[in-house]
Design a binder for these strands. Sequence first.
DNA 1: ATGGTTGGATGCCAA
Length: 265
Amino acid sequence: MRLITWNINSLRLRLPLLTRLSEEYAPDVICLQETKVPDPLYPQEALTALGYPHQLYRGMKSYNGVTILSRIPLEPALPHAPDWCGKMDCRHVAARLHPDSGPVNLHNFYVPAGGDIPDPDENEKFAHKLAFLKEAKEWFTAHPPKRSILVGDLNIAPLEHDVWSHKQLLKIVSHTPIETSGLLDWMHTGFKDAMRTAIPEPEKLYTWWSYRNRDWKKSNRGRRLDHIWTTPDILPNMQKITVLSALRDWEPPSDHAPVMMDITL
DNA sequence: ATGGTTGGATGCCAA
């Protein structure tokens, strides 16, 4: 099974890029974040025509929004999914997939970015981000994952070599110790970092480059904000992980590159 | 230290 996760930053604007992505890489499952499309306007038929008849989506006006597209039959894994932080803001969707080897749970998350000031007392958005991490950790502690994959834009680069300069980013939202420890606490409820299993430190590994750099490739001030975790029972089935950084140049680009995993299931 | 760019129910807010 080939799975891709991507913060697409507007599904409707980048539908042509998604078409090209599906043609060039032929993923079986695609998880998208920041679709920015309300459910009534979701392009269900166009995505079916692309070859993904099985879809789960949760969107709202202007912000957030997540979807899972699949060639493989799926059903909603959590009909009563948690309403994270009580905000109903479309940051999580979970599917139960049915590949040949048996059911697998797939979680697709879009964690709050957290604003600019890394202080929960001064910045409500940062407080929301920390509360989200805590709730997610508590939920997976209460529901220990088995045969599960968790992907998404988690908006945190947890390791030293997940950012272009560890030292310069320690006080920058996405790499502060309170966030990185919160993310790893969540992961340790039963997941392994599949990307770093495939591509260990100290190799630099980024999935996001700011729009604000004139030449993202030349400055290469990236961060690993997008993640793929799996439970240990299926981690040995992983074959390969690739960051599709070429897409950072496809016009008009998202500021995130997709991450692709091949796994035998 | 500062400012840089993009998307969207835009003339500002979130990222």
